[in-house]
Nucleic acid binder design. Sequence first.
DNA 1: CGGTAAGTTGAATCTAGTCAAGAAACGTGG
DNA 2: CCACGTTTCTTGACTAGATTCAACTTACCG
Lengths: 300, 300
Amino acid sequence: MTAAMSHFDALDFVGSIDAGAPDLQEHEGANVSVRDLTRLLHIEYPDDAWLARTAFALRRVREGEALVHAGDKFHSLYVVRSGCFKTVYTDFSGSEQVLGFPMCGDLMGADGIDCGHYSSTAVSLDTSEVVIVPLTSLARLVYECPSLEAMLYRVLSRELVRVQNMAWTLGTLGAEGRVAAFLLNLSARLGALGYSRSSFNLRMTRQEIGSYLGLKLETVSRALSALNTAGIIQVHQRSIDIVDADALRGVIDPAAGVPAGVAPQFDSPPAHSDVSAGKHAKKARAQFPPGLAWRQLAAA
Amino acid sequence: MTAAMSHFDALDFVGSIDAGAPDLQEHEGANVSVRDLTRLLHIEYPDDAWLARTAFALRRVREGEALVHAGDKFHSLYVVRSGCFKTVYTDFSGSEQVLGFPMCGDLMGADGIDCGHYSSTAVSLDTSEVVIVPLTSLARLVYECPSLEAMLYRVLSRELVRVQNMAWTLGTLGAEGRVAAFLLNLSARLGALGYSRSSFNLRMTRQEIGSYLGLKLETVSRALSALNTAGIIQVHQRSIDIVDADALRGVIDPAAGVPAGVAPQFDSPPAHSDVSAGKHAKKARAQFPPGLAWRQLAAA
DNA sequence: CGGTAAGTTGAATCTAGTCAAGAAACGTGG
DNA sequence: CCACGTTTCTTGACTAGATTCAACTTACCG
């Protein structure tokens, strides 16, 4: 914890200096097309999306570096392109609570829309790359390609469901259940990205996992050991092998089960129904330029 | 718990019957203007918002009745106009987890946007009224009055921050802290609606509070009793008097404190910055019909 | 007035937190 | 390449806090 803070202190300046100027350090120059972005977010828009000429800058974030700080003025959304982050609340006393571990394809920064300031800090656990989506680009983008608007609503809603599931986990599961849920969630997300579902390396410390799950690091360690000796998983430091995924699901729920309406999201990533309104999009656009997003959602 | 379920069972049919037909039972006939709606959501749009001719139906929901069920097809957003709800996940075994207590001015149903089905069930704790905002109306509304689009993003983001705070509470606070946080939150929300901040009646049972806070009902009862004997609050069944709000805040955090970036939302309702971009709205609208929402957010 | 649902309180149990020591991995510099 | 210090992880013993089980009181509704 003290160690983590020294990390933060060292980086606070970097964060503060560019806090005012919206992400001007795009040394990388590399940029990302709208097509790339929609792929990243697992949203398939068949027609006009590819025509949009907006392009987005990339930003490379080194391990331990903060992308945004809680309280910074909100100016951009970010989509993780590679690597892994943690988003945290930090209080005066220096203790932190991890809210999530955004990975490839995940959105960050949406919590800043309402009050105009980010409410959480995003720190890279890795050398990561994010796509910067400034508000100004977003306005232009939606103008060029209104069908993309639905994407934003979907992504926001998805985020909401994710956090709700988290609240459910914290509210109802014990230590082992939480750790099991965490592993299954990670497994599913990595699987969706094409990596192995059963064998992976954690990018975060026990401390960070514990903070995320509302547990102490020792408890996380114990829970992992218990699952290990039970033969359900194999743990060696940060390397995890899921031996028996069903047993792992059983740990979450000895009898009851994951909430009915939630199960789909829980351990399988959103099965993004390929937008059926695609073929009607052009016509609709001509009739009703704005609000198309909601028309599409209504049609689905 | 068993009692709650029998309640659900009795009402399941009502919910299922109209699940297919999007809210056709508007016997009340009464409808709500866009102006009313923006007031309800604490969003002030000075100019063109009042011109929109879209009107919304009201629906009255009796105590114990479900407004939507988890898994129902998503077709409308709802804004609470009076009364109080609980939103719950229910699993196979019948146990439920309360996710929130939406009250006057709060949005419900946003969790259905992404996957097209509501992920939680909303049950009225009271005879309540909600404004029905069907997707189809939403499309028309945004067409008539694009400046209202920002409202939706704000409301979604607000919801996100709320649930994140909840996750923080569950992850870091003990029983008394959670109950204290719950009371302060309720106090602030009621205060924002013009009711007394220090004296109110709970609409929910200990069981429901416990489910919301990840505690058992006995623990909630004990925590309330402890705060009572400490002289911080006065409890008599469901009537609460907050004697010493500062002490209550102290319970949440004996030393550390609420996370820096979060404190504002936590016990004071969003201080909705009256949109400064209002005066530019008309011009912007003429130039860029769609995407205006994001331009406004960028300007703020 | 009686029955039921909701709330309070106590005692025993169990889970997770705390304190503390030791082992394993990592990075750095000799 | 190895020795060193640091960080991370594991494990054990003990404590604090929440759950469970249970009895009892209080409100509410017909």
